[in-house]
Nucleic acid binder design. Structure first.
Lengths: 226, 226
DNA sequence: CGCCCCTAGATTGTCGACAATCCTATTAAA
DNA sequence: TTTAATAGGATTGTCGACAATCTAGGGGCG
């Protein structure tokens, strides 16, 4: 009876109503359709999706555990506030975790990992040449790259932490701050060097290069904010 | 009407029933009173605590987001299974994150941080001398140390990830594998060196030492498992 | 005029019941 | 004997309603 998923699309199969609400709301928050810091009204959202408050609350709690919502007892839920400090905290986390992911990827790499990462890199190079440095699609491409690379670490806990817990917040910041990245050309070269280190099985170098890559991106953002 | 918290203890003030259930169950899982891999029955637990299934489900979902439970739709929740692989994954995460925490702590340190860490270290030394290497209480003391050190990083995201997300699982493994640690004396010296680096404001060294410290502990565990 | 208390409205927390789904044991057929 | 289908029982997902708590606005007091 719920409005959500009446299209009965394949992606809804085996998913509970609460989970579908969670996916919808996550996208809306990440893409900024719900303003950061704004209050979430349970009755209002429940009416909007034609769902019970119970199912909605489950979705809200999942969003809280992702760090996209903040809930306080007897008060309610708010979308997280974006702050410069929060963004820099994210970068420190990414530097540590993606650095480790690169080290592990270099040690645990399979042929499939290398092939797919290479393909992705080539694809980005094509796009980048076509767009001569503008690189409108680069941000999402950048995500694909980091996402795929983290998978290659084979550490499920690390993968979950980065891909399910941190990246959605990173994307939220990108949507809010605008997606333009003047580092496209340079970022591409850095990606390329990281892959080379992983191909060579040099975990220490791969970690070092990734940490520099993320720190460079952080400095780029810091300059932009002033 | 619920059994939980009828003592009306101060710690229950301002906490919802679901949150108290969460705290109780978390302790029981971490300490092994509920066996790893065992199934969780919602009706059974609800009867035991004299609470509704709704409140209990909220507690279960929080446990899931901590990685202590695994829930599958229309099937139910199970306590996570402990595995050698899972333990090693935890160590890789800790190496990356606590290393970063040390670097940040060295850069952001306050006088309070240094004083408290020193006191803790002295306290451990006393205990350790008294017990001549046996160090029954060392595991929890070790936790106090790492816990306090992470706080000094001042990175809320990092603090939350380590203290609320990873450490409970680490403690779960320790309870399950037995708490004895033959590294007490050596671990103490390593802690001491880490503090010195933080006092000196040498972030790079502090990170390096912490990563070695955790890796040594990992190797110690690996040897024990064979 | 400013501050505090109190009432009214709305929102959140909690509960019990119904419907949908899954697991198990039994039965029948190959 | 083994396999597959099926019915029964139990468990999970979802819902609407009630009780507890918070927030906002008005009135009284210093």
């Amino acid at each position: 009876m719920a409005l959500v998923g009446t299209g009965d699309s394949a992606s809804d199969a085996g998913r509970s109503l609460a989970e579908r609400l969670f996916l919808i709301l996550r996208a809306e928050i990440v893409e900024g359709q719900v303003a950061p810091g704004s209050k979430i009204s349970e009755p209002e959202l429940a009416r909007r999706f034609n769902a019970s408050r119970g199912s909605l609350r489950e979705a809200l709690m999942r969003l809280e555990s992702l760090g996209l919502l903040e809930r306080r007892v007897n008060v309610g839920a708010r979308v997280v506030d974006l702050s410069e400090r929060g963004l820099l905290e994210l970068y420190d986390m990414r530097e540590a975790l993606e650095g480790m992911a690169c080290r592990l990827a270099a040690e645990q790499r399979t042929e499939d990992d290398l092939v797919e990462l290479r393909q992705m890199l080539d694809h980005h190079e094509q796009q980048e040449e076509l767009q001569a440095g503008k690189a409108y699609f680069q941000p999402e491409g950048d995500f694909d790259f980091h996402f795929r690379l983290v998978q290659a670490s084979k550490n499920d806990l690390l993968i979950d932490t980065l891909c399910n817990r941190l990246y959605y917040r990173v994307r939220m910041y990108r949507y809010q701050l605008g997606m333009a990245s003047p580092r496209a050309r340079r970022a591409f070269r850095e990606h390329s060097h990281i892959i080379e280190a992983i191909e060579a099985g040099d975990g220490e170098l791969a970690e070092l290069l990734m940490r520099r890559h993320i720190r460079a991106s952080r400095i780029n953002i810091e300059n932009k904010l002033r």
